[in-house]
């Protein structure tokens, strides 16, 4: 069953990826209202995302296109590694912290950053990770990785960073 979903996802990703590059939903795995995967409710809160360790898994930070919460193909190997880490550390609880660049309005950026974190969590669950160990938090545009107002800074800021909850 799981493999059917995954095949479907890949197919959808290829199909829509070709036809509609710039728009959200280009990966179709997330954000396309026609797919039938249901979201998994978030677990009860644990730890404090503010004091989580974002260094250990820093290289698994997922980057996003402008105004998109789609996990792009080039980012997926990072999530394979992260899923692997979670399976080897089954009692570790992590938080996915979503972020946006400085463009756009405050509430939407908050929600979009949370949605990016949700998309990463959902993808990890799809890879077999235990959803009850993965929390999410959205910081909107207020925790930039880089403070500049240019493409390079914006590219770094549109991200979802995994943190280990202590």
């Amino acid at each position: 069953m799981k493999y059917t979903y995954l095949t479907l996802l890949v197919l959808l990703a290829i199909l829509t990826g070709c036809s509609n590059d710039a728009k959200k939903g280009d990966g179709a795995a997330f954000g396309d209202s026609s797919d039938s995967i249901s979201d998994t409710a978030l677990p009860e809160r644990s730890g404090n995302p503010d004091t989580a360790d974002y260094e250990t898994l820093k290289s698994e930070t997922v980057l996003f296109a402008y105004d998109s919460f789609t996990i792009e193909a080039k980012e997926r190997p990072k999530l394979d590694k992260l899923a692997n880490y979670l399976s080897n550390n089954s009692s570790t609880k992590i938080v996915i912290a979503g972020h946006t660049d400085s463009r756009g309005t405050p509430q939407y950026n908050l929600a979009l950053s949370e949605k990016r974190a949700n998309a990463v969590r959902q993808y990890l669950i799809g890879l077999g990770a235990n959803g009850s160990n993965i929390s999410t938090v959205g910081y909107g545009e207020d925790r930039p990785a880089s403070e500049g107002e240019n493409d390079s800074a914006w590219n770094q800021n549109r991200r979802a960073s995994p943190g280990i909850l202590r």
Binding site: D39, T40, A41, L42, P43, E44, R45, Q107, L110, A111, E114, K115, N118, R121, Q122, S135, T136, V137, G138
Partner: peptide, 29 residues
């Protein structure tokens, strides 16, 4: 509101009894 995930954007209804807001406890805002 302190449900799992994000609880934000609350607006009072005109009679003040209710808040509309965005919650992500379902895994999606």
């Amino acid at each position: 509101a302190q449900f799992p995930g994000q609880n934000t954007g609350a607006a009072f209804s005109p009679n003040g009894s209710t808040l509309a807001l965005s919650l992500s406890k379902f895994g999606n805002p």
